[in-house]
Each structure stands twice: as C-alpha cells, then as structure tokens.
C-alpha cells in the first residue's frame, strides 16, 4: 500500500507540475503582447514598454515561469486587473467555496438517485424499467446544461401570468445572483435549481456505470451460488451484488468532478451564480491574465486531487489492486 500511494502521489505531482507549465505557456506564449492586451489599443508605445517591464515580460521565459510558480505556491497570487486592486487569492477562494457548495448539493442529489436508477436498470436488464431508464439517461446526457438550465428557469421559476407550474411552486428564484459573500443559509434557496441542472450532468454517467457493474456481478459464480443456496433475493442484492458492483462507481464519482466543473461553468453563467466558473468567464472577457491562470490552476488542482483520492479509495476498497 505504501509503495502504491507513493507512486500515485508522484504521478499526481508530476501531472500538476506539467499542467502548470502548460497553463503558463498557454497564457504567455500565444502570439500577441500581454502588456498591449492589458492596456488596450489606445496605449502609447512607452506605456506598453513600462508595463512590460513592470510585469517582468522582458525576462527570459523560464525566469517568468519560476517567478510565477514560486509566488503561486507561496500564496501570493497577485492583484486582479479586472476587479481593480482586489487580491486574486481572496476572490478565487471565495468563489471556490461558492462553487463547492453548488457542487456538493448536486452530488448529494445525484449520487443516491443515480445509484438507485442504475441498480434498478441492472437488475431488470433488457426489460421495461431498464429501457425507460436508458432512454431517460440518454436524453438527459444529450441536453447541454444551458438548455436544461433555461428549461428549468422558464418552467419552474419564472412566474408569468400564464405559467401554472411556476405559480404552484413559486419558491424557486429564477436567478441565483446572490452576493458573492453570502452565507450558506442565505444562498441555499437559490442553489436548488442550478443544483438540479448540475445533477442531470452526473446522473447518466453514474447510473450507466452502476448498471454495468450490477449486470457483471449478477453473472458471477458467487452470486449464482448465493441464489442456489436459497438466500433471500434482497440479501443477495445488498450483501453480494452491490458490494462489488459499486466499486467502480466510487471511482467514477470522484473522476466525474471534471465533468461537474465543466457543467458548473455553464450553469453558473445561466443562473448568474457567483462561482468559480462565472469568475473565469469574466476574467477571460476582461483580459485578466493572472486571474485566468489562478482559476485554471485551482480547478486543475481540485480535479487532480479528486482523481488521487479516487485511486486511494479504490485501492482501499479493493486490495487486489495494490498487489499487482
């Protein structure tokens, strides 16, 4: 186990480092003048040159990278261009907390629902419930987040005179534009609708994988033995099938943070929720390069940590992995 953990940790650190190089190169080396981008078209040549000097853009590239990454690791992420003078780290952590709230609520809804759907589909393979669930998850997966988000806003939340559904359940606000520093309790009412939209992103993936796991375990020898031994069906399902079938599900839940984050970018934009995704879009629109770097670094770190945790969890639940 120790050697396995060390290997995964090394992999995690190497990937994180390479990604940081990638992000740096992406933002700094793409053709064009960063100082000119910041100052805009009207700035004079001397102003641009002064800005270049100030930002250290005249240094060799590896010096620039080294300065950036050491400052980043130390926690000095610089000041935002777009949000005048604000400390980037404060802004990013605040938005990260907001996104994490949204992500956690959607996971709390998505995981039980999708595992239940997946188990039902797996147990009734090829029959009506399975087909219904397959069609449902395929159509949910096919709808982009902004389509489901807008659909939810327009059917459930907007209270027009002629919208009976919204009138009946009028407690969902149509916009989630809460203050960025709102407490969890204040933000909660406006979290439900975006969380449901984000849930749909995860639902199909987790359900499909659980279904496959259940079908595979159902065919195994030990399950047949248990059934032939005369054990009651619920016992076979919960004690035998699910224990092994849910193993890959644990991993996919951790890995799906990547999908969830992509989905959240769009969903936060649709609902106007002040999370990391909407911060990134603002940063890109306002040419806030240090902010872009910071947001992408934080996002990638979250994803890589989730993958690392998934590896460890999987190994802890399935000792066969570490033996090889």
């Amino acid at each position: 186990m120790g050697r396995f953990m060390a290997r995964r940790l090394a992999f995690f650190l190497v990937t994180l480092w390479m990604t940081s190089v990638m992000i740096f190169l992406l933002v700094r080396v793409l053709p064009g003048d960063v100082a000119r981008v910041i100052l805009g078209r009207d700035a004079s040549e001397t102003q641009v040159e002064a800005k270049r000097e100030e930002l250290g853009l005249n240094d060799p590239l590896f010096v620039q990278y080294f300065t950036w990454i050491t400052d980043f690791v130390r926690g000095d992420w610089g000041e935002s261009f777009a949000f005048r003078g604000q400390d980037i780290r404060e802004l990013v952590t605040q938005r990260l907390v907001n996104s994490a709230r949204l992500g956690l609520i959607s996971m709390l809804i998505a995981i039980p629902v999708s595992i239940t759907l997946g188990v039902i589909a797996g147990l009734t393979e090829g029959k009506l419930p399975d087909n219904l669930i397959s069609v449902f998850s395929l159509s949910v997966v096919s709808l982009p987040e902004f389509v489901t988000g807008l659909f939810l806003i327009n059917t459930v939340a907007l209270k027009w005179a002629d919208n009976p559904i919204a009138e009946k359940i009028g407690w969902f606000p149509s916009s989630s534009a809460v203050r960025a520093d709102a407490s969890f309790r204040d933000a909660l009412p406006s979290l439900w609708l975006p969380a449901i939209a984000a849930t749909l992103v995860l639902l199909a993936y987790i359900a499909r994988l659980t279904r496959a796991g259940v079908i595979e375990e159902k065919k195994s020898e030990y399950v047949r033995t248990a059934v032939l031994k005369g054990l009651p069906y619920p016992v076979v399902i919960f004690k035998h099938i699910l224990r092994n079938a849910l193993l890959p599900t644990v991993t996919v839940i951790a890995i799906s943070t990547g999908w969830l984050i992509s989905g959240l970018v769009v969903i936060e934009f649709v609902f106007g929720y002040p999370g990391l995704g909407s911060l990134l879009i603002t940063a890109i629109e306002r040419r806030d390069l240090p902010m872009i770097q910071a947001v992408v670094m934080v996002t990638v770190s979250v994803i890589l940590i989730a993958n690392f945790v998934a590896d460890l969890l999987y190994a802890a639940l399935n000792p066969r992995i570490t033996l090889n």
Partner: peptide, 20 residues
C-alpha cells in the same frame, strides 16, 4: 504531456484558448 493537457477540462481549455 497528454496527461497534463487532459487534466484541464475541455470546456475550460477551449474558453481560455479562444479568449486569448
């Protein structure tokens, strides 16, 4: 290198590149 690129979600990577 491929692992490092794939660690960035496709949508984020696309947004950053297009934005720049």
């Amino acid at each position: 290198i491929i692992d490092a690129i794939l660690a960035i979600p496709a949508l984020l990577l696309a947004l950053v590149i297009i934005g720049i």
